[in-house]
């Protein structure tokens, strides 16, 4: 139980708005690929802040910015793999410059400036409201977690669980809680997602014989990750259902 004083506590989003500004600068300069990753993370955290406020407004703008950053980041993550077939690596490398140009165009767009201005004026969030809305996010995680245990669960279900769990973790961090219980589950969901993203890029290229073998290896890896996610869910489910992510 939290005291009345704690319930009156106000949460401010200024530090993550500042973080977003810093990471936009880093991403714009292109000197550090982690800047793009940080930009995505800051967008996702601010999206959760808006969800906790109960706002729909500005979330599409954050999503638009995050999507442009993801175009660059996904390629960075894929290219960091050591076992890529040469043809796949070359195709991915060819996509880097256009993805980066797209990101720079988004960062220079008037909409991005308007978003940053609007974020500067976001009101503080009451702890009690954050707690209520965080409870709803936890319920969503619990429902999706049960879905992925079903044998027929497709990759979209796992993707939805990964996003819901990330939102719940960020919600708890906004409330200065330290989520721990679902770390392994998050890591397994992340590894599964990396495999899915790789296969999506492969599918977009069309499969030659060499790439078909790699795709087949990714499918095996994916099946393994699915089982590992299910195992991690069963370990973490109790804590998640008790709201102790």
């Amino acid at each position: 139980m939290r005291s009345a004083q704690q319930n009156e506590q106000r949460i401010e989003c200024g530090r993550w708005r500042e973080a977003l500004l810093e990471r936009i600068d880093v991403a714009r300069e292109g000197r550090d690929s982690e800047g793009v990753h940080g930009l995505r993370v800051a967008c996702a955290r601010l999206d959760v802040y808006l969800r906790l406020l109960g706002w729909r407004v500005l979330r599409a703008d954050l999503r638009w910015l995050r999507r442009a950053a993801s175009g660059v980041r996904d390629l960075d993550v894929l290219l960091a793999q050591n076992d890529l077939p040469d043809a796949f690596r070359a195709a991915l490398q060819a996509q880097c410059a256009p993805a980066r140009e797209q990101l720079l165009a988004v960062l220079a767009h008037e909409r991005c400036g308007a978003l940053l201005n609007a974020l500067e004026e976001l009101p503080p969030l009451g702890f009690a409201r954050a707690q209520r809305r965080s409870g709803k996010l936890a319920t969503r995680v619990a429902v999706l977690g049960l879905h992925v245990l079903r044998p027929e669960a497709d990759v979209e279900r796992f993707h939805a669980l990964r996003r819901a769990l990330r939102r719940l973790r960020y919600a708890q961090e906004w409330m200065n809680l330290e989520p721990r219980a679902a770390r392994r589950l998050q890591a397994e969901l992340g590894a599964l997602n990396d495999t899915v993203v790789a296969q999506q890029h492969l599918a977009a290229l069309g499969l030659t014989q060499a790439l078909r073998e790699y795709d087949s290896a990714l499918s095996q890896r994916r099946a393994l990750h699915v089982e590992q996610v299910r195992g991690a869910w069963q370990t973490a489910a109790g804590a998640i259902l008790r709201g102790e992510v």
Partner: peptide, 20 residues
């Protein structure tokens, strides 16, 4: 921004910030 958010139930697509 707050006024736009109050409209959100009437919006099928996106609410977008615009300095214009």
């Amino acid at each position: 921004v707050e006024t736009a958010d109050l409209l959100s139930d009437l919006v099928e697509g996106e609410l977008r910030a615009s300095g214009l």
